[in-house]
Simulated scan of single mutants.
Amino acid sequence: MQTIYHIQDWLMFVLLLGVLALQVWALVDCVSRKAAAFPAAGKLTKPTWVLMTVLALIVVLLLRDVTNLVSYIAIIISSVYLADVRPAVREISGPSRW
């Protein structure tokens, strides 16, 4: 029985690392984009997206649990940026500055 708990803890840790990697990727990409491209793509402003992705990262870092509602919302924010905002802004501005 103890082995099952160790496997579960390990899987939750790997999941947490994956979520943190996703959120750091969203934040770094957001910071590296030109501010003018966000409204040109019909999205919220760059400071708004930076703030939301920073808050999402902070929430998951503080809670260290990806199985509660607040963490789900934080994951969704980063995922929406990467799946919807990033392609639209990238189309307008081209590759990131970094």
Rank of each mutant, 00 (worst) to 15 (best):
S71N: 00
D29K: 10
I76N: 02
T67R: 01
V70Y: 00
D65I: 00
V28D: 15
M1Q: 15
W25K: 15
V28G: 05
D29M: 08
W98V: 10
Y5T: 13
L62C: 11
E91L: 07
P47T: 02
V60P: 00
L20G: 05
K43F: 00
L44H: 11
R64T: 08
I4W: 08
L27H: 13
L44S: 11
L82R: 07
R64K: 06
V24D: 12
I92R: 13
I7T: 14
V31P: 06
T53Q: 10
A41T: 01
W10E: 13
V24M: 12
T48R: 14
D9A: 12
Q23Y: 01
G94D: 03
T53S: 04
W98C: 07
D65R: 02
L27M: 08
A37W: 10
M52Q: 15
K34G: 03
A40W: 09
C30F: 07
E91C: 02
T3G: 00
P87W: 09
L27W: 12
S78L: 04
A36L: 12
Y5P: 03
V85D: 08
R64V: 09
K46N: 10
S96C: 09
R33S: 04
L44G: 06
A37M: 02
I58P: 00
D9V: 05
V50T: 10
P47R: 10
F38E: 13
L69R: 15
G94R: 10
S78M: 05
V28T: 15
I77M: 11
M52C: 07
L17A: 05
Y5A: 11
A36G: 08
R90K: 12
T3Y: 05
T67K: 00
L11F: 07
T67H: 02
W49A: 01
I77P: 07
S32M: 15
F13P: 03
M12C: 03
I92D: 05
I77E: 10
V70M: 00
V66W: 05
V31A: 05
A83F: 04
Y5S: 11
P95R: 15
A37Q: 03
M12L: 08
K34V: 09
K43R: 15
V54G: 01
P39A: 04
A36H: 12
A83Q: 09
L16G: 04
Y81R: 06
V31H: 06
V89E: 06
S79K: 01
P47A: 01
Q23I: 11
L61G: 01
D65M: 00
R97V: 11
S79R: 02
R33P: 04
R90V: 05
I73W: 13
L17T: 06
A35T: 11
Q8T: 09
T3L: 03
A41F: 02
I75A: 01
L11V: 10
G18L: 09
R90W: 08
H6A: 03
F13A: 13
L62W: 03
